[in-house]
Design a protein around this nucleic acid. Structure first.
Length: 136
DNA sequence: GCCAACGTTGGC
DNA sequence: GCCAACGTTGGC
């Protein structure tokens, strides 16, 4: 099982929208590195859900329910989506500022490659953020 | 609103 | 194949 982090601008699609929908396909990825990450996702993988531009926090944890398939919003065969469903809302969303301060998260891709929208995180990083978000 | 980082495009 | 110009993302 692998761990990931995806970004969404809350103005466009927030964690609350995601909760209301119950599931979504993760569309709009138009970057090869992010696309490759999407294709590496397996059913059951855990995904941190980060609010970029506004909020700047990890709001919840999602789960991969369907692996990569052709992006239904485009005919361009280069792009894919995965299906995600919300798994857990974090009681205390973890802000970027806290992630930056935490020594255990010094090497997280979120900071190192700030423009990437789909990225892998390590099990340790995942656990650090999700347990912080639970208030522990 | 600005700017740094970085991906993409196009001329050579 | 190199690199300058340009566009986009995202934090501040």
């Amino acid at each position: 099982m692998k761990y990931w982090l995806v970004k969404s601008e809350p103005v466009k699609y927030s964690w609350d929208d995601f909760l209301k929908d119950g599931w979504t396909y993760w569309d709009g990825v138009r970057n090869y590195q992010a696309r490759n990450n999407l294709q590496s996702m397996k059913k059951g993988d855990a995904v941190l859900y980060y609010h970029s531009n506004e909020g700047l926090e990890v709001a919840g944890v999602a789960e991969v329910i369907k692996e990569a398939y052709q992006d239904p919003t485009t005919d361009d065969e280069r792009w894919v989506v995965v299906d995600l469903r919300p798994k857990e809302s974090l009681k205390y969303p973890v802000p970027l500022s806290a992630i930056k301060k935490d020594k255990r998260l010094n090497d997280i891709a979120l900071i190192k490659q700030s423009r990437l929208s789909v990225m892998p995180v390590t099990k340790k990083e995942f656990q650090t953020i999700s347990s912080t978000g639970r208030g522990k």
